[in-house]
Amino acid sequence: MKSLPTLAALLLSAALPWLAHADGCPEVTVDGYKAPDYGCLSQQMGNATNAAKAAKKNREAQDISIEKRLPNALGLSTPAATGVRMGNTFGTSVKPQQP
């Protein structure tokens, strides 16, 4: 009779992972803190047609031609950034105010 509770406990522990993730989104535990998969939860909450439209708009927004991109997005220096770096010596010296 002692094996019956042990068997029940074993079956319950084997079924817990499937019961805990009935919604289909995995949960990760790190150092005792649970972190849900927000991407999976967002897909469940969103409408598929709206998600496709939003993804298309995001791709279009990222496909900006190089002529229309900002200088700092291309890695170029701007006059404002140079002025901050040079301080009060901007335009008068080649050495910055503070190294």
Rank of each mutant, 00 (worst) to 15 (best):
A52D: 05
A52W: 02
A52Q: 08
A52L: 11
A52R: 03
K53H: 06
K53D: 12
K53P: 00
K53L: 15
A54Y: 07
A54N: 04
A54Q: 07
A54M: 03
A54P: 00
A55K: 07
A55T: 04
A55I: 02
A55N: 09
A55F: 01
A55D: 05
K56D: 07
K56C: 02
K56Y: 03
K56W: 03
K56V: 01
K57Q: 14
K57R: 14
K57Y: 12
N58E: 14
N58P: 00
N58R: 12
N58D: 10
R59G: 02
R59W: 13
R59H: 14
R59N: 12
E60N: 13
A61M: 14
A61D: 15
A61R: 12
A61K: 12
A61Q: 14
A61V: 06
Q62F: 02
Q62M: 08
I64N: 02
I64Q: 07
I64E: 14
I64P: 00
S65W: 04
S65D: 15
S65Q: 08
I66S: 06
I66H: 04
I66W: 10
I66C: 10
E67I: 05
E67F: 05
E67W: 07
E67N: 11
E67C: 05
E67T: 11
E67R: 08
E67G: 04
E67Y: 08
K68G: 03
R69D: 11
R69K: 15
R69T: 09
R69I: 04
L70I: 00
L70Y: 05
L70P: 00
L70W: 02
L70E: 13
P71R: 01
P71E: 11
P71L: 08
P71G: 10
N72A: 12
N72R: 06
N72M: 09
N72G: 02
N72Y: 09
A73I: 00
A73W: 06
A73D: 15
A73T: 01
A73V: 00
L74H: 04
L74N: 01
L74V: 02
L74A: 00
G75E: 09
G75T: 04
G75M: 06
G75H: 06
L76A: 14
L76W: 10
L76K: 12
S77Y: 07
S77D: 13
S77R: 04
S77L: 14
S77K: 07
T78H: 01
T78C: 07
T78A: 13
T78F: 05
T78W: 01
P79M: 03
P79N: 04
P79Q: 03
P79E: 03
A80Y: 05
A80K: 08
A80P: 00
A80S: 10
A81F: 00
A81T: 01
A81Q: 06
